[in-house]
Design a protein around this nucleic acid. Sequence first.
DNA 1: TTAATAGTGTCTTTCAGACAATATTAT
DNA 2: ATAATATTGTCTGAAAGACACTATTAA
Lengths: 249, 249
Amino acid sequence: MDEASFLAGYDPRDYPAVAVTVDVVALTIRDGKLSVLLVERGEQPFAGHRALPGGFVREETLDRAALRELAEETGLTPGEDDLDRVHLEQLKTYGNPGRDPRMRVVSAAYLAFAPSLPEPTAGSDAARAYWVPVEEAKDLAFDHDEILADGLERARAKLEYTPLATAFAGPEFTIGELRQVYAAVWGEELHAGNFHRKVLSVPGFVESTGETTARGGERGGPRAKLYRAGDARLLHPALLRPTREDRVR
Amino acid sequence: MDEASFLAGYDPRDYPAVAVTVDVVALTIRDGKLSVLLVERGEQPFAGHRALPGGFVREETLDRAALRELAEETGLTPGEDDLDRVHLEQLKTYGNPGRDPRMRVVSAAYLAFAPSLPEPTAGSDAARAYWVPVEEAKDLAFDHDEILADGLERARAKLEYTPLATAFAGPEFTIGELRQVYAAVWGEELHAGNFHRKVLSVPGFVESTGETTARGGERGGPRAKLYRAGDARLLHPALLRPTREDRVR
DNA sequence: TTAATAGTGTCTTTCAGACAATATTAT
DNA sequence: ATAATATTGTCTGAAAGACACTATTAA
């Protein structure tokens, strides 16, 4: 069966037209708070609501489409900027009929972990995008509340058994900064001493640069040693979230 | 902006036509071996190759489309049969240009965990589908080798921290049967004594029926106690795979 | 009787988490 | 000097894994 007969056998009119888009849950930590990149919608439907950045997939891979959307909305350029250090992974695909009132839209959602990026610059396409603390990101357009919730759960789980927390930090970081990443994403403080020892005990999680910070903390304290991400893809043993009995059932 | 102007603003001709399909990685355990449901392709492209079952998404949710495809290929009926005990979850979406040589096809892949289902019956639509041990499932059509590999990795990981192994067993099972599920999926034997104690120590993993098997094992042994799945959604503590140092980097 | 399997006991090592102690540095 | 933070030490309990042992049942 060649393409012609394939197309003849499956008349596109037998199936309603479907649009394929990508939506991006881009997370970063700003002012110690886990934040998500949102865009302001000026048009119906959901005019005035905020939404996850996204758009149509072109003649490109889904991964590439997600990176392109992220670049467009942040105003940053792949190849320059910190956009190369952004971790991007597919989250889940949403395709319920009616999720977009205009037509059938199937959207592959992506999850991005970004180091602290600059506020999208005014005057560009990205002017309508900005970072919002996740606890203030409510009442989003379409089914984006659900997508964001799924993304947050994925992010929280991934910190446990992968070194992705380092994707939120700069190229060099202190153990304390890494701890603050975990605290921001999990929404709870962690015991500094135990965290410190645990991170260093996981093979390949971090490696020492041999350097220390130039200064101590804002309000005093010794200068901390600097580390960079190690070569581990999985953390073993994992850094488990503080046990919540009610999480299990 | 109403639908008319939306469609006017986004002329479908600006974007190539995209087809949306679902593909299903349906796993079960047959004769102690982890097996996957495959269909024989009679037509080009990939005529003579085997492929994952799948098809076009209709006016339905993606989840529903996956369940429908699974029902069609197995010849089983939701509402009857064991199809209700099948666990279905979204795996990942594949949309690289060129993955189908005929046109742009974006496919949402699903992962199914099934108790031992009957061989699809001849004479039906399902006649061309059959179960194949995963180690013999090579050289599949399209990018289905990659999809299967992703599905297997997901399945192996999920056995660690969820009670999904029970989805491979019948409504009542012995600890030994549950151990064989883990052994088949992970591809390695597990220590019977330690496994037994560990399963019973995880709250909500299994609950006793108070009954035992009618007979002992084929070649002797005591009658084993029967259990059914408990109410836990997550296993805490998890049943970790035997440590493979090389898995970590 | 023999072999296979179910289920339990025990010991060692690792790890999580609580708590404490010391060292260093900004103010 | 004072307070804050980095880093290390110690202890307890949970859990993994190795090994051994007893009990039960099919052939």
